[in-house]
Design a protein around this nucleic acid. Sequence first.
DNA 1: ACCTGAACACCGTTCAAGT
DNA 2: ACCTGAACACCGTTCAAGT
Lengths: 249, 249
Amino acid sequence: MSSPKKPPLVRAPLNRERVSLAAVRLADESGLDALSMRNLAQELGVVPMALYKHVANKEELFDEMINALVLEIDPLQKDLEWKPALRHRILSARTVLLRHPWAPHVIESRTSASPVVLDYMDTLIGIFLKAGFSLDLTHHAMHALGSRMWGFIQEVFPTPESPTDPEELAEAFAQWSIRYPNIIEMATAANHTDESQRTQGCDDQFEFEFALDLMLDGFERLHKSGWSSTQVSRSQNASLESAVRGKRK
Amino acid sequence: MSSPKKPPLVRAPLNRERVSLAAVRLADESGLDALSMRNLAQELGVVPMALYKHVANKEELFDEMINALVLEIDPLQKDLEWKPALRHRILSARTVLLRHPWAPHVIESRTSASPVVLDYMDTLIGIFLKAGFSLDLTHHAMHALGSRMWGFIQEVFPTPESPTDPEELAEAFAQWSIRYPNIIEMATAANHTDESQRTQGCDDQFEFEFALDLMLDGFERLHKSGWSSTQVSRSQNASLESAVRGKRK
DNA sequence: ACCTGAACACCGTTCAAGT
DNA sequence: ACCTGAACACCGTTCAAGT
């Protein structure tokens, strides 16, 4: 009953690396849902339990997959200014992520950072510090970058796809224009501005870079103005907010 | 063999709302892992299959949970300027999210936006447009906000917790200082700046507001300068990036 | 209309045993 | 040292049946 397509009577012995690389391949090709210990074992021509000699459990397998992924990110370019250096590294992280669509979900499920992950973060922090950023501002900047440092686009809720039938589409459009006038106004405008992109949806790469540059420019401005966290900027906004809260009560 | 603690011989009839509210409660109290159709049914004193009369499958249950959550967000305050209006709404979304720790994971798993979700997004877009933002800039701003509009902090990889034994801690610290000098330098500084926060870790609320204000200030600046997406800002950075790419080749 | 029981096709993981 | 077989305690969901 076993598949005749898998005849490795003599099999290369399993090891941690072979297991995690196979896991990455399986997730790349068949999606994260298909990555069960049982499926992975079958892919390796082995009984499920054999995997547990090389990986303590599925969580550890995920950790190992993330390590493989982080090692794909371009190394630091030491001769660049802080801004292009950060930009290059993070855009590289993004191209890596695009090769592994399962990555965001797996990254988010990790409960602690591995040495490989910490190395990456350490180099990013190093870029800020070497450029003379204060420890304080560097700290906040790293938090503000958040998952964007891994190349996440962090969109949620893709808009439902429009019907293909033109008549249905017209009707749907009409209903939406009433219920969600602002969305429709914005979306139709966006579709016309740049004809090079696919007719529906927008250019993810552009949106990623737009947001990244917005943050980098913001960091630069705060750095140049000698910003520190014990300053006006926050309390100003905070008092606005508490004014709003008071009003509602 | 059935539990003697659940004697509702006459039970209020189930409906969609009772099912989803029970799901929210179960996830709040016991975590997302505990929210299985079987557990939920037991919580409601019913056999698992009974749920499927009110909800097509587990995905639909998740959709309904998100709806319940979005409806908890403060309504729009029409008398505010665009910036405090956005700020208030998004900070409200954040407090809602903090009440429901399972929400980020569930939100990210949704494949399309429900009417309730679209309503929320429509009002945010409306705030920009009413303030005179171009359709173009509004579109990019919404993407740049990304999951932050739902109050996500979007941290990943919490640093591993330090050992409690002081001797181990000293040793760990020494090793980290060598391997991750920048992380250590930044982290120790951050712990000293604000004594009001817990000794380790940092103030999540501050980091969220810092990043939010950074984006809002950026939007304001672009708006005032009449920014449009067909401009220099991008090509400038893009040419920098391609210069880097060329260099590496 | 609403609920039930039994079953199907899966999971991750433990344990004791094989070579 | 490395792999196996059988089993355990779970999943979401289908189907045919009950009241």
